[in-house]
Write a protein that binds this DNA or RNA. Structure first.
Length: 825
DNA sequence: AGCACGCCGACT
DNA sequence: GTCGGCGTGCTC
């Protein structure tokens, strides 16, 4: 038998039913052109409808191959994904129980770069054959006569026949039309006009010989171009202050050439000043050298830099990267999305210039595509970005650095719900790169792994400027009440702000809730205004005079009388950043106050503006949410007030103590970064809680020891793995029944596998903590299991939920499966 | 997703 | 008898 090659193809069909590798034969003449990671066009289904897919594997095939079809066409000349990245995406699929396609999309170029389209053209001889058409066919053909060259997609819009494709195929068979396959590049390359001198060898005088002396502008342009290799038309016109016609005239005279040149949309602003290399402290130096020599010796390739805030971790990253790229490899730097500010980017771009690509969520599709390509084509050596930058398509990756490792934004909330740290680790293993994590407050999981020696721990306990960490004082808000102070501000915080204002220093006030009042309630009957679509109380926003749902975005006018009992005693409870702003403005009318939260930063660049004003000292008091806690460096800030430390502490989640500790430490770190001592005031109703007490004294190790004991005692990560299934849909009955069915099916399956013991650690089905969101009722089943049992449990869940998701039992029901979720809320 | 097949009721 | 609606199941 003849040797044949077959390819495994994942087809781009957005349904779970077809989400598996399909085998196709490769025509001999195509064998040379086809590689893993290329996109292909394949016939699919009974109508042999052409769809695109991606080749994930090519191998020799020696058995019968009659049942396979041939690959129709190859779309790429080079693989768009490397073999390593395919492997990485398959690992994600397995680990996070996602589909092949969702996992592949993460490692593929951004956007749907190319759309395949079938275009329909009339054949010359159609008039001779029009006789033998049925009425339906005639109807379609009439459309084609009017729209020669129409795409199949557009034809579908004009004719709603259910079997349109069949009829078109029949028309083609009858010889009236011809269909061609064409690819439409959705994301187009961007071109710009450039200008250069035609003859660069001649002297300037010679060049100006036949130019009229009165043609000042022409002379000016030629003189300008004489010293320049090439310049974009836009810039030429601007710098010489001329119009297009002048350049056109010079082109006609054969003096200059105008041509199109592809430009890569560069999202990095070009007014970045150089960020010079800093002298390393002893600790920093030790850190860089240890990591680099360990990597070189192959001794260790996973590191955690535990450095107090202000200990200069960024400089360590920069110098490590310098060494790595000097050895011909490339580097990825992950930072949390909200700290991907110009301030952060500047440091990397300021040091490495145009060797840096920046990937963040605000990029347009075109910009993202260009950055992706610059990386893929080795035009840059460093990629800085949020979570998804972990997939930057470098070909020779040397290092992945993850800053603020403890941040929860590294876990994706979309399928596959991957954790960028885990993925980075996997990618490093696959590609032989090294992983460096850095933070002032390591996550319990990561720190635990340093204890197991899976990750090497490096500690920096000195701040760069040798300043002490700011003093943190804890205010018991219950005592304030006893003292008769009903205000949001404790007396101590009030006085500290007053003092700070007097000394012309800046203050940051932190509260992790936006809006004015967090809920609105009737004092007579207790009715609370809730969102119609979600089971969530609505937040009052003063400026817009509206009640808003922070989950689905719905807003309505606040009621004047209670919708339930009609009483007029509607009261607003709970505080948000907007209320703080108002209070502060009342207390300190002379102060310049700014608020920074989702509501004030929705416009593009608005948050940069606020930060710039802050930097210039034009703001005395900055009030904000999460946003202001990350990596900001304002030397004039000497006071940080945390309005309510309890918000994160009281959440019924196993990470709430950890979050609180991290928050206090991180926010506290914003104070006293310059030449002045800082001070932090924390207001709380739980002053004795260990996370608050230990944050006060910056006792990370003590906090870790306490927390890890709790985790062990109550069986939480890192000792076990958690699986979270949320069953949701618009009909409550169906959701409840489905949740019960999922539960009992899983129990049955576990019994079949003789693993009754695992049933003990199933919690639920219960209504999810947010019982209704965006008109969907939500029920939850939680699983805890030992690391060794995770695969078995996942297998069972996959069979019960994913493979059955199309079954009629689960009509109108969706599953949200999260492996090791960030929080169980 | 599409497409076909098969079953069933409506209508020439 | 035949046409079309809809439920079900498969696509290398």
């Amino acid at each position: 038998m003849m040797k044949k090659f077959i390819a495994q193809v994942i087809v781009d069909n957005k349904t779970s039913n077809t989400d598996k590798p399909y085998t196709y034969l490769i025509k001999e003449e195509m064998l040379e052109d086809i590689r893993e990671g290329m996109r292909v066009v394949v016939p699919f289904g009974m109508g042999n409808r052409l769809i695109k897919g991606i080749v994930i594997n090519i191998e020799e095939y020696e058995k019968e191959f009659t049942k396979f079809k041939y690959i129709e066409d190859v779309l790429d000349d080079k693989p768009i994904i490397s073999k390593e990245m395919i492997d990485l995406s398959f690992w994600m699929r397995d680990y996070y129980l996602s589909s092949y396609l969702d996992a592949l999309h993460l490692v593929m170029p951004p956007g749907n770069i190319k759309e395949i389209n079938t275009y329909i053209n009339l054949k010359k001889e159609w008039k001779e054959k029009i006789g033998d058409l049925g009425p339906k066919e005639k109807e379609i053909f009439d459309i084609l006569i009017k729209n020669d060259g129409i795409s199949f997609e557009n034809l579908k819009k004009l004719n709603k026949d259910k079997n349109l494709r069949r009829k078109v195929i029949s028309l083609e068979e009858k010889g009236l039309i011809r269909t061609t396959l064409e690819i439409d590049t959705k994301i187009r390359k961007k071109y710009e006009r450039y200008v250069h001198l035609c003859n660069r060898e001649v002297l300037l005088d010679e060049l100006l010989l036949d130019i009229d002396k009165r043609a000042n502008k022409q002379i000016e342009i030629l003189e300008f171009l004489y010293n320049i290799d090439e310049i974009s038309m836009k810039e030429l016109l601007r710098t010489t202050n001329t119009s297009l016609s002048v350049v056109k005239t010079l082109e006609e005279k054969g003096k200059v050439a105008i041509y199109e040149k592809e430009v890569l949309r560069d999202p990095i602003p070009d007014d970045i000043c150089k960020y010079n290399k800093h002298e390393l402290t002893k600790q920093q130096k030790y850190c860089v050298e240890t990591i680099y020599s360990d990597i070189k010796k192959g001794k260790c390739d996973k590191f955690l830099i535990h450095g107090v805030t202000g200990s200069g971790k960024t400089e360590i990253y920069l110098q490590l990267i310098e060494k790595i790229i000097a050895s011909g490899k490339q580097a990825i730097v992950l930072v949390p999305e909200i700290s991907l500010t110009p301030q952060t980017v500047e440091r990397f771009v300021g040091r490495f210039g145009d060797n840096v690509a920046v990937l963040h969520s605000k990029l347009s599709n075109g910009e993202r595509f260009d950055e992706w390509r610059r990386i893929k084509e080795d035009k840059v050596k460093i990629a800085v970005g949020a979570r998804s930058a972990v997939f930057a398509p470098f070909n020779n990756l040397g290092i992945i650095i993850i800053d603020e490792e403890h941040e929860n934004s590294y876990k994706s909330s979309m399928n596959p719900k991957y954790d960028a740290i885990k993925v980075a680790e996997k990618r490093c293993e696959i590609e032989g790169a090294s992983l460096v994590l850095g933070t002032a407050t390591p996550s319990i999981e990561t720190y635990y792994r340093t204890k197991l020696s899976e990750i090497k721990l490096l500690t920096l306990d000195e701040r760069i400027n040798n300043k002490n960490l700011p003093m943190m004082s804890i205010i018991d808000m219950r005592e304030e009440l006893d003292k008769g102070n009903k205000s949001i501000l404790s007396i101590e915080l009030y006085k500290a702000i007053e003092e700070n204002l007097k000394n012309k220093k800046q203050t940051i006030l932190f509260l992790n809730r936006r809006g004015y009042s967090t809920f609105v309630s009737c004092r007579k009957c207790g009715y609370v205004v809730k969102c119609d679509n979600c089971d969530v109380s609505m937040t009052y926003h003063f400026k817009e005079n509206k009640l808003k749902c922070h989950y689905c975005g719905m807003s309505l006018k606040p009621p004047e009388v209670c919708p339930k009992c009609g009483s007029k005693y509607i009261k607003y409870f709970g505080i948000g950043t907007e209320k703080i702003e108002e209070t502060i403005k009342n207390y300190f009318p002379q102060a310049r106050v700014a608020r920074m939260d989702l509501d004030t930063t929705s416009k593009k660049n608005s948050h940069i503006k606020i930060l710039n004003r802050m930097k210039k000292g034009e703001i005395d008091i900055l009030i904000g949410t999460q946003m202001i806690t990350k990596g900001l460096d304002f030397p004039l800030v000497t006071l940080v007030g945390i309005i309510a430390a309890d918000t994160s502490l009281n959440l019924p989640d196993f990470r709430s103590a950890e979050r609180t500790f991290q928050l206090l430490t991180q926010v506290g770190g914003r104070a006293g970064r310059g030449d002045f001592e800082g001070k932090v005031i924390v207001q709380t109703y739980n002053p004795s809680h260990f996370s608050i007490q230990m944050a006060k004294n910056y006792e990370y190790n003590e906090f870790y020891e306490t927390e890890i004991m709790m985790r062990k005692e109550f069986k939480y990560p890192p000792f076990i793995d958690i699986l979270d299934i949320v069953i949701y849909g618009p009909e409550e009955e169906r959701v409840i029944n489905s949740a019960k069915k999922v539960h009992s099916d899983i129990v049955k399956q576990l019994e079949k596998e003789s693993r009754r013991d695992l049933v003990e650690n199933i919690f639920g089905p219960n209504p999810a903590p947010l019982e209704k969101l965006k008109n969907n009722y939500r029920w939850q089943i939680l699983f805890k299991c030992n690391k060794n049992d995770l695969d078995l449990l996942k297998g069972v869940i996959k069979r019960v939920c994913i493979d059955n998701s199309q079954s009629k039992h689960y009509k109108g029901i969706k599953f949200n499966i999260d492996v090791n979720p960030n929080s169980i809320l």
